[in-house]
């Protein structure tokens, strides 16, 4: 079932962030949510994730879906290492070896025992991406997942996401149209 935002509005104090937003995110596809800075992309995905309630309007197709996400601020347990952070959200079937393998694919190797607080921004981002990919999910929401990654790493991460999300509903917030092209994504424009 597609995820549909119907007439969704949201304001914070006097500031109207979303006004009568209608959008469809296709099931089983990568959907790129695009738009200028401050237009309400993060607010829209927060509403889809159920972290915010819209002032009016509704979200359809979300009920009963297991969601995983990459947040703008990574939201990792700072004093835990990368493997533990990923393990926290995974099913019993996902072993440490699998997690290490996945982290290695994204270039996090030899740092398995270090707390993520000591990681660079790009490394933390990749840990958050692996976490979102390995957790059981029907809907994956990635809020600016390529931020802080250089071009080569970004291409590597795009390839990784494409492989791991095949057939799943994915919503990616991005500024860059080129990302959408690389991901062969359905474009959803805000504003």
């Amino acid at each position: 079932m597609d995820i549909k935002l119907k007439h969704v509005s949201k304001q914070f104090g006097q500031k109207i962030v979303l006004k009568d937003l209608n959008a469809i995110f296709l099931e089983g596809r990568v959907n790129c949510l695009m738009g200028a800075s401050g237009i309400g992309k993060t607010t829209a995905v927060n509403i889809i994730m159920g972290l915010m309630e819209p002032d009016s309007g509704e979200v359809l197709g979300r009920q009963g879906k297991q969601i995983t996400a990459v947040f703008q601020e990574d939201r990792l347990i700072e004093h835990w290492n990368a493997v533990k952070n990923v393990k926290l959200v995974c099913d019993k079937g996902v072993s440490e070896d699998i997690i290490k393998q996945e982290l290695t694919i994204l270039g996090i190797k030899d740092s398995f025992d270090k707390p993520v607080i000591n990681f660079s921004g790009g490394m933390r981002r990749r840990v958050a991406i692996v976490r979102a990919m390995l957790a059981k999910s029907d809907l994956i929401i990635l809020d600016e997942p390529f931020r802080g990654l250089d071009e080569a790493l970004k291409m590597q991460v795009i390839e990784y996401i494409k492989q791991r999300t095949e057939g799943k509903t994915v919503i990616i917030v991005t500024h860059d149209k080129e990302d959408a092209v690389q991901l062969n994504a359905n474009l959803v424009m805000l504003g």
């Binding site: 159920g50 972290l51 969601i67 996400a69 947040f71 939201r75 926290l88 959200v89």
Partner: peptide, 12 residues
Amino acid sequence: EKLLQMAKVFQI
């Protein structure tokens, strides 16, 4: 609060 939101989304 942000970690609690993360936990909510991932259904930890």
